[in-house]
Design a protein around this nucleic acid. Structure first.
Lengths: 339, 339
DNA sequence: TTGAAAGCGCTAACAT
DNA sequence: ATGTTAGCGCTTTCAA
C-alpha cells in the first residue's frame, strides 16, 4: 500500500500538505493541490482509514442499527441510507440486532463502542431505556427512524394521519362497514405502529360519524399469511359482510385480497381493500395504499446525520425532527360502493 | 473514552499485558488475565478499532459487496452473513454497487482500498475483468457467492442440477407438456443463472426422452409480474395447454400461479407449478420449489472468510470452493398428472 | 501557504 | 510471564 510519504515525496511537498490538499481542510495553493492530486492519482494512493481515524477522530463511517435485514421495509430503508452515504464518501457498517439477549447487549456494550463510527442511524427499533442510554453515552449524533423514542432525534411518519387518510379514502367512496385488520381493539400497550394505525382508523370513522364495529376487527401479525387468515375469518363469519377492508400494512392487505378472491368475492366490485406502506408488490397487485416512501426515509436519515456531522458546531442535530411525507396511492383495489 | 493506559494502571500491569490479555495473543497468566478483564469491565473499556487496526493491520471488519439491498435474495444472504460475523465479533461494512458507472468504479478505486476491511464477500455480482483485478490486488481473502468468476474463490449452487431436479420432479409426476418461464431458448450469452437453469431444464427433459417444445418457452425477467405476464401469454395461446410450468425462480412461479388462477385453472389439479429459490413467500403460496438456502449461503461465506483469516498461514482460502446444498421442497402446487 | 514535529491509542518485537 | 519501546500512517498544532 502506498503511503502519504510517497505521495509527499513524489509531489515535492510535506505530508502535512498532502493531508491538507486531499482532505480539503486548511489552505493549500491551487497549484500545489493540483500537484498533490495528480501525484496521489498516479500512485494510486488512498488514505488509510485507520490512520486517518486515529489521528483525526473522524471515521467517515456511519453505523446502522436494525432489527431485521431480510424484511422489505428495513432493507429498503437501508438501501436509501446506503446510496445517500456512499454519494458523500461514507462507509456504512451494519448492526443487526438479533433476538438473542446477550448478542443484542454486545452491540451496545462492545460493537458500537469501538469508535468505528461517526454517527448512528437506528431504524424502527424499540430500544430499552438502558439501550437508549448507551446510545446517548456514545456522544455521537444519533438519528432514529420511526421509533417511539422521545429521547432520540427521530424522523417519523405520522402513523395516525396515515391510517386516517386511508380510512377516509374508503369512507369517501361510500363505505361504512369497514373491517380492520391489524391491531385488535383492546390491544393497547404501546406497540406503536399497530396501535397508532388503529387509532387513525377509528379517528376517521369518528370524524365521519361512523360507529366502530367490534365484530369487524381481526388481529393479525403484519404478514401476508396473517392478513390472509384474518380475512378468511372475517369473511367467513355469517354476520353482515364488510364492504371494505382496511389492512394496517400492505402485506396484510395483499393477503386479504387473496383471501377475498379465494372466497369468490371480486375486488374491488364486491369488496374494497386498502393497505399502508408502499410495498414493492403493491404495484403488481394494483393495491391502493398510503405510501410512506421508505427509500426516501433512509435518504433523509442519512442526510440528517451528515448535516449534523458537517455542521459548524459539529454533532448538533439542528432543527426539530421532521415529519416524513406520505401519500395516498389510488390503484384498483378500492372502488365506490354501489348501492 | 477510557484508554488502555487507564486499564493498565487500574490493573497494575503494562499496556502490553492489557493488550495481550484482552486479545488473547501471547501468554498471560490466568490471574493477570482475570485482573485485567475485571479492570476493563469495570472501567467500561473497549479497544479502539482504529488504533488497534493501525498497529496490528487487522480490522475485525468484513466488506460485503452486493448489487441490490432491497431484494429478497440479497438481503437474506446478507442476513446470514451478518449473524455469522457478529457471533465472531466482526463488523460488516456494506458496499452496495450502484448502476452508476462512476460510483461503481469508486467502490473499487477508493472505498475498498481504505484498508477498512480484512476480507470481502461478493454476493452474486457479475464483475468486470478490471474489477476482479482490483479485488485481487487488495491482497485480502475474497469469497464470492454464486458468481460465475473463475478467478475468485466461489461458493455456488449447481444451478444446472437444481433446475434438473425441479424438472425431474415434474416428469416423475407424469408431466410431459412442461412450459419454461425464464430464459428464452435462443438466449445464450452467459447471463449465468437464467441460462444454467434453462440448460438443467432441458437436460432433464432429454434424459427422460421428452422433446423440448419451443412453443412452451416464455422469457421473463425473474419478477412476479414478469412471471404473471409470461404465464398469461403462455396459457392464453390457443395451442395445446401445458400441464406443468417450470419457472426459473419462485417469484416468477408465484406470478404464474396467480395468472393460472386468474384464468380459471386450478393449481395443481389443472396445472402444476414449480419454482426455484426457497423464497420466503413460497410457504404462504404452498409453492413446490428447490430451496437453495440463502441464509445458509451467507453463513458459509462468512465462515469461509473467517477461516481464511484465522488460518495458520493467514489469507489462504483452503480447500476447493464448496458446492452449496439445495433441496426439493414439495408443497401443494404440483400434483400427479391425471389421465 | 507550507513544514516540522508531536501525538492519536494501540500492538509486537525484543528484553528480561 | 511481563515490561519497554518503537512504530503503525495519518492529522494538527505551532512556527515560519
Amino acid at each position: 500500500m502506498v503511503s502519504i510519504d510517497e505521495v509527499a515525496r513524489f509531489a515535492g511537498v510535506s505530508t502535512a500538505t498532502v493531508s491538507r490538499a486531499l482532505s480539503g481542510r486548511g489552505h493549500v495553493s491551487d497549484s500545489t493541490r493540483a500537484r498533490v492530486e495528480s501525484a496521489a492519482r498516479s500512485l494510486g494512493y488512498v488514505v488509510s482509514s485507520s490512520a486517518s481515524s486515529l489521528a483525526s477522530g473522524r471515521t467517515r463511517n456511519i453505523g446502522v442499527l436494525l432489527p431485521y435485514l431480510d424484511s422489505w421495509f428495513f432493507s429498503t430503508v437501508l438501501s436509501g441510507i446506503a446510496s445517500a452515504l456512499m454519494r458523500r464518501g461514507y462507509d456504512i457498517t451494519l448492526y443487526n440486532l438479533s433476538a438473542d439477549r446477550v448478542q443484542r447487549a454486545s452491540v451496545f456494550e462492545t460493537f458500537l463502542r469501538r469508535q468505528r463510527v461517526d454517527g448512528v442511524i437506528a431504524i424502527s427499533i424499540e430500544l430499552g431505556a438502558d439501550e437508549t442510554g448507551r446510545l446517548r453515552e456514545l456522544d455521537l449524533p444519533i438519528v432514529a427512524i420511526g421509533g417511539p423514542n422521545p429521547r432520540l432525534f427521530t424522523l417519523s411518519v405520522d402513523q395516525l394521519a396515515v391510517a386516517q387518510l386511508a380510512t377516509e379514502h374508503l369512507i369517501g367512496l361510500g363505505h361504512r362497514a369497514i373491517a380492520h385488520i391489524g391491531a385488535s381493539p383492546e390491544f393497547d400497550i404501546d406497540f406503536h405502529i399497530p396501535t397508532h394505525r388503529r387509532q387513525g382508523f377509528e379517528q376517521a370513522l369518528a370524524d365521519a360519524g361512523v360507529p366502530t364495529r367490534p365484530d369487524l376487527y381481526e388481529p393479525a401479525d403484519f404478514t401476508m399469511d396473517g392478513g390472509f387468515r384474518a380475512a378468511m375469518r372475517l369473511l367467513g363469519r355469517a354476520a353482515e359482510r364488510p364492504t371494505a377492508i382496511f389492512a394496517a400494512s400492505d402485506e396484510m392487505a395483499i393477503g386479504a385480497l387473496l383471501a377475498s378472491r379465494e372466497l369468490g368475492h371480486r375486488v374491488p366490485e364486491d369488496i374494497s381493500v386498502v393497505g399502508i406502506d408502499g410495498h414493492e408488490l403493491g404495484e403488481f397487485f394494483r393495491l391502493t395504499t398510503v405510501d410512506q416512501f421508505p427509500l426516501g426515509q433512509g435518504e433523509r436519515a442519512a442526510d440528517a446525520i451528515l448535516d449534523a456531522l458537517e455542521a459548524p458546531r459539529s454533532g448538533a442535530l439542528r432543527e426539530e425532527p421532521g415529519q416524513l411525507p406520505y401519500e395516498l396511492i389510488v390503484r384498483e383495489t378500492t372502488a365506490r360502493l354501489e348501492p
